[in-house]
């Protein structure tokens, strides 16, 4: 059973986001920036957003990390593009519910609505990796709050 979980945690799509993350690199004209570390493993991510007319026009990240934290950051930068602040904050809450082993699982319809983000649900079986998956999302929230550090 665990072997299946592992295959699902490290499925091809996740590994592709890890190897070739989307929106990786600097964002010159960012309006919001924040960064954070996973204090248990030292992983670091810096996130930059450009908001125009209340919507996220671009999101890019840099940083070192494990496959889960990088894939999660990569998925984040895709997912928030075009979202307004309220939608972005709602996504943080949904992802948090998605990956937390103690939270109510999302129903099929909501999972489907998440698109590729739903990949992260495999993290539920690995509570030790929850922080890896959530790092980028905590930084997103901090960036929207105007905080330099998550």
């Amino acid at each position: 059973m665990r072997a299946d979980d592992l295959t699902s945690l490290y499925q091809q799509t996740v590994l592709e986001h890890h190897r070739a993350p989307h929106n990786h690199g600097a964002l010159g004209d960012a309006t919001h920036r924040s960064e954070g570390v996973n204090r248990f493993c030292g992983d670091q991510i810096a996130l930059a957003l450009r908001l125009r007319d209340g919507a996220i026009e671009a999101a890019r990240f840099v940083g070192e990390g494990c496959a889960i934290s990088r894939a999660s950051a990569s998925l984040l930068t895709d997912a928030v593009r075009g979202a307004d602040e309220g939608r972005a904050r709602a996504l943080v809450a949904i992802v948090s519910q998605l990956v937390s082993s103690g939270a109510q699982p999302l129903d099929e319809a909501r999972l489907e609505a998440l698109g590729e983000l739903a990949l992260l649900r495999a993290v539920r079986s690995y509570p030790a990796r929850e922080n890896c998956a959530l790092l980028a999302w905590q930084i997103l929230e901090a960036a929207l709050d105007g905080k330099a550090h998550a």
């Binding site: 665990r2 945690l9 490290y10 190897r19 493993c41 690995y126 990796r129």
Partner: peptide, 14 residues
């Protein structure tokens, strides 16, 4: 190469 220590830890724990 290519694998972060955290991922190695999870795969070994499995």
């Amino acid at each position: 190469e290519g694998a972060h220590a955290h991922d190695i830890g999870t795969i070994l724990d499995d």
